[in-house]
Design a protein around this nucleic acid. Structure first.
Lengths: 160, 160
DNA sequence: ACGCTAATGCTACAATGTTGCAATACCAAT
DNA sequence: ATTGGTATTGCAACATTGTAGCATTAGCGT
């Protein structure tokens, strides 16, 4: 609801999205193209709600289920990545080569998730036996600049 | 549903829980005592479902709402901490002095969350202007020993 | 242009979490 | 120990997020 990258009427950039979809053996549909474009146009993970708004903005009649399934497919194909927000809503981001490992900032006020490129979790960890590690993610909790209020989370009393 | 620390019939240990609750100016109720005990008795974050099972096991008639509110209060008081699981269910753990910063392993199969003491996220991060950091959490994604299957998440193709 | 089938778009449903309010039980004062 | 005020509970109803089934639509190869 803050992303202003809703490709207004640009049929050309859509090619990149179409190609990605085709390369993965999927059918190029309005929904998928629009979702990929929205994801590509945003530097931050987007929720279903935000994606839905993006689709509505470019006049694509869709319902929640279709969006869910388009996203599911993208995740399945390794095109997008799903991350859990501070609220219990999924957010999605493109899997970009240079962003394999980066941190996410979760605003505990508005629930927004923000990518922090350049931050890498320390990857040297030893898991218990039988555990398989897929990826590590550094999650920072706090308040984003917009919410900016402090002292609302009494459960964290250490400031180190 | 896997925690076997359901204080069967031990009225004594309950004292510790009662004291914690009293110290925070709350009324000592069956539900709160049982929840605190369950949380204290577990080394891993527990979901509402698991907590509910624990309460049922010691014959405390409760409903979901009561449990939710007891948990809310504990989090408000800084007694417990709420963390978002890989599924969209909250998990809770006691806020222990020596566990302020530790990693969480999320099994993407069963959704279970496991604490990994001894692991600390690198805390030196520089956030954008206006951002306020409450706490950092290192989240590891993968499969736990029980699920143990690999290759189910095509979105992660790097194994470094 | 045609046909096969993936993908959509309904509707209905499941799981998780929240709100309002009357009844209950905790705790303190008598 | 009884009583009373009020924090908590417990119920019912609702909100949000995500899923399942299935008939219809639309991609894409022929």
């Amino acid at each position: 609801m803050r992303t202003s990258s809703n490709a207004p009427a640009s049929p050309q950039p859509a090619q990149a999205a179409r190609e990605i979809i085709t390369r993965h053996g999927g059918r190029v549909t309005r929904t998928r193209v629009a979702v990929v474009e929205a994801l590509q146009g945003s530097t931050q993970p987007l929720s279903h709600e935000e994606l839905g708004a993006a689709l509505a903005a470019i006049d694509i009649p869709h319902d929640r289920v279709t969006l869910y399934r388009a996203l599911d497919w993208l995740v399945e194909q390794g095109i997008a990545r799903r991350i859990a927000g501070s609220d219990r809503a999924w957010r999605f981001e493109m899997v970009r080569p240079h962003s394999h490992r980066h941190a996410h900032f979760h605003c505990d006020r508005c629930g927004q998730v923000i990518c922090l490129e350049g931050l890498q979790p320390s990857s040297r960890v030893n898991l218990p036996d039988g555990f398989h590690l897929d990826r590590a993610e550094l999650v920072l909790h706090g308040a984003c600049a917009t919410c900016g209020i402090q002292g609302l989370t009494p459960e964290t009393t250490d400031e180190d």
